[in-house]
Design a protein around this nucleic acid. Structure first.
Length: 160
DNA sequence: GCCAACGTTGGC
DNA sequence: GCCAACGTTGGC
C-alpha cells in the first residue's frame, strides 16, 4: 500500500509548525483527537505517510508546511487521565476510545498556501477539508496535493 | 465578537 | 430512534 496524504489542523497559538520543528527528530504526539471521523482517519495512518500542517483559528488560515508520520496509531492514554484536558470519562483501560500517532517535522513552507487560495483555485472544491470545515484530520488526494504544490510554487515564484 | 455549521448528549 | 438543546470549531 502506498503512502497516504493527510491534512492536520492545529491552532498555532496552541501548537504551531515552529513548535513541531523545535521537536526535531523526536517529533510530537498528535493526540487529543476527540472526533470519531477524525479518529477513524487517524487509525488508518501508516508509517511515512505525508501530513500537510494547517494553521487554523488564526489571522491567516493556511497550509504552512509538511510533516511525516513516524509511528503507527496507538491508544491515546490521555483519555484515561482525569488531570488531562483530553480526559474522556467513557474510555477505560479495556476500551480506550481514542488514538494518537507521532509525527515529525519535514518542511516549513516559506509561502503558506492560504485557505483563500484553496477556495479560489476551483480545482479543490471537493477537498474534504473544504467540504467539512470542522474536521481536524482529513485525507488529501494525490491530485489535490498536486494542485496545492502548484499553488505553493506560484507563491514562491511571486515572492520577492 | 459574531455566527454558521455541525457533532454530541440525553430525555422521551 | 428521534430530536431539541447544547457545546465546539473556525472563518470572518
Amino acid at each position: 500500500m502506498t503512502a497516504s496524504i493527510w491534512l492536520l489542523k492545529t491552532e498555532p497559538d496552541q501548537f504551531s509548525i515552529a513548535d513541531l520543528a523545535s521537536r526535531g527528530i523526536a517529533g510530537e504526539r498528535w493526540n487529543g483527537i476527540r472526533n470519531y471521523q477524525a479518529r477513524n482517519f487517524l487509525r488508518t495512518m501508516q508509517l511515512d505517510d505525508l501530513a500537510l500542517i494547517y494553521h487554523s483559528g488564526c489571522s491567516l488560515p493556511a497550509i504552512v508546511g509538511t510533516a511525516r508520520v513516524i509511528s503507527i496509531p496507538y491508544e491515546d492514554l490521555d483519555a484515561l487521565n482525569p488531570a488531562s484536558p483530553y480526559f474522556d470519562a467513557k474510555s477505560s483501560t479495556s476500551n480506550v476510545r481514542w488514538s494518537a500517532v507521532d509525527i515529525q517535522f519535514s518542511q516549513l513552507w516559506s509561502q503558506p498556501v492560504t485557505l483563500a487560495q484553496l477556495k479560489a483555485s476551483g480545482e479543490l472544491a471537493d477537498m474534504t477539508i473544504l467540504r467539512q470545515a470542522r474536521l481536524s484530520i482529513a485525507p488529501v488526494l494525490d491530485v489535490e496535493l498536486r494542485v496545492i504544490l502548484a499553488l505553493l510554487a506560484q507563491n514562491e515564484a511571486a515572492s520577492p
